[in-house]
């Protein structure tokens, strides 16, 4: 992992306990992380997240605000953020294994600078990796969808126009080149035209 040392990362710390907050601030004072604090009790967390655009969110696992955070990706259109949860109870550590992937690393106990920084680093790196995997997955899925619609258009052309597979493919490629569209978009037009044509023909 390459760390760009000059780049400061904004950390939003959600916790109601002010002593703990100070501990974190002290632990991170000479690192690439800058801490903004949110108590969760009164001011709206969503507004804070929107305004601050933190690079990382750190939250006490026992904070009621966790449900709000949980909804960021599900209900709202906020970009997902790496989230680190901390707990002061040793036993809660086992939760790490069951928490959603890409969401959490874990700190147990006091904010020891030697320990906190690598955990935050790991969370940021892990999240970036998770996100790139997710993007890759979406791209692969889109490519598969495109292949599917092109195949369907080819089949319809073969059936309705009596073309060979090669002729069908070439005619679509020519349409794409002439109109400056993607093959996929041409295929979509072909499918919707021929589909409605067939349906219309049947209902006559």
């Amino acid at each position: 992992m390459t760390v760009v040392v000059h780049e400061k990362l904004k950390v939003l710390l959600i916790d109601e306990d002010h002593a703990k907050v100070q501990g974190f601030k002290d632990a991170l004072c000479d690192t690439r992380y800058v801490i903004a604090h949110h108590s969760g009790k009164h001011a709206s967390l969503l507004k804070t997240v929107d305004k601050l655009q933190p690079d990382l969110i750190v939250i006490d696992i026992e904070s009621p605000s966790r449900d709000m955070l949980e909804s960021l990706s599900t209900l709202s259109h906020f970009n997902p953020k790496p989230i680190v949860m901390f707990s002061t109870e040793q036993e809660t550590e086992v939760i790490t294994q069951s928490v959603q992937s890409g969401v959490s690393a874990y700190i147990v106990g006091d904010a020891d600078p030697e320990r906190v920084t690598p955990i935050l680093d790991a969370a940021v790196a892990q999240f970036a990796q998770f996100n790139s995997l997710k993007t890759e997955l979406i791209e692969t899925k889109n490519q598969l969808d495109a292949k599917e619609v092109i195949d369907k258009a080819k089949r319809l052309l073969i059936k309705s126009k009596g073309l060979s597979e090669e002729q069908a493919f070439h005619s679509m490629r020519k349409m794409a080149m002439d109109s400056g569209q993607k093959m996929e978009d041409v295929a979509k037009t072909v499918v919707s035209l021929l589909d409605s044509f067939h349906k219309g023909a049947r209902s006559v």
Binding site: L69, V94, S98
Partner: peptide, 15 residues
Amino acid sequence: QNSWATLRDKLHAGL
């Protein structure tokens, strides 16, 4: 418990 998410995670983890 203070949040549904943490209640769920503790149940999943057997706590």
